[in-house]
């Protein structure tokens, strides 16, 4: 049962991820990315990490992708007025994409992908356990990252503030 679910979910994530890249209309890309995030949340649930799954949906699908959609819709990017990319931009994109691809291949080679085994029913993804881990073992990185967020927020407010003439 959970085997089939895994394969269905994985197929959906791969197809939606590919459609993100191959869609001609930017709005469609964004929406396919949202679908992709939902399938990844499904994978989290299969790993018994419901908290991660729901936070993934709230943060990525609910907040970040809405922002993306905002920008894409307001810029009104359509395939009709799509500008042709300059050559060196294409070149740089190919190189950076290739580097990422190489890294992924290297990571895959070192891991054992021979068989698919059922995820172990651990309870680490439950809210209590995640919370305990975050506020005991990882309290310093956690607080540091929140300071980082705060500084980013202040930066955004400063940028958005109108200058008084």
């Amino acid at each position: 049962m959970s085997h089939y679910l895994f394969y269905i979910l994985s197929t959906l994530s791969i197809i939606s991820a590919l459609l993100v890249v191959f869609s001609r209309v930017p709005v469609y890309s964004v929406l396919w990315l949202v679908v992709c995030f939902f399938t990844i949340a499904g994978h989290y649930i299969m790993l018994n990490a419901q908290f991660l799954a729901i936070v993934h949906i709230i943060v990525y699908a609910g907040a970040i992708m809405v922002l993306f959609l905002f920008v894409v819709m307001l810029l009104n990017l359509n395939k009709e007025n799509e500008q042709h990319k300059i050559n060196w931009v294409k070149f740089a994109a190919v190189i950076s994409g290739g580097i990422l691809f190489l890294t992924l291949i290297a990571a895959m080679k070192s891991s054992d992908l021979g068989t698919y085994s059922l995820p172990i029913k651990s309870e680490i993804g439950f809210v209590q356990n995640v919370g305990m881990k975050l506020f005991t073992d990882y309290v310093l990185p956690f607080e540091l990252s929140s300071v980082l967020f705060l500084s980013a927020m202040i930066g955004a407010v400063v940028l958005a503030k109108k200058e008084k003439s």
């Binding site: 699908a61 959609l69 819709m73």
Partner: peptide, 25 residues
């Protein structure tokens, strides 16, 4: 009866904007 029920409600509320945004655009 999931143990994150209230977060589920927040999640659904936050994806509720898609219906409006897609339709409007």
């Amino acid at each position: 009866d999931i143990n994150i029920g209230i977060l589920y409600i927040m999640a659904i509320a936050s994806i509720g904007v898609y219906g409006i945004m897609i339709g409007g655009w």
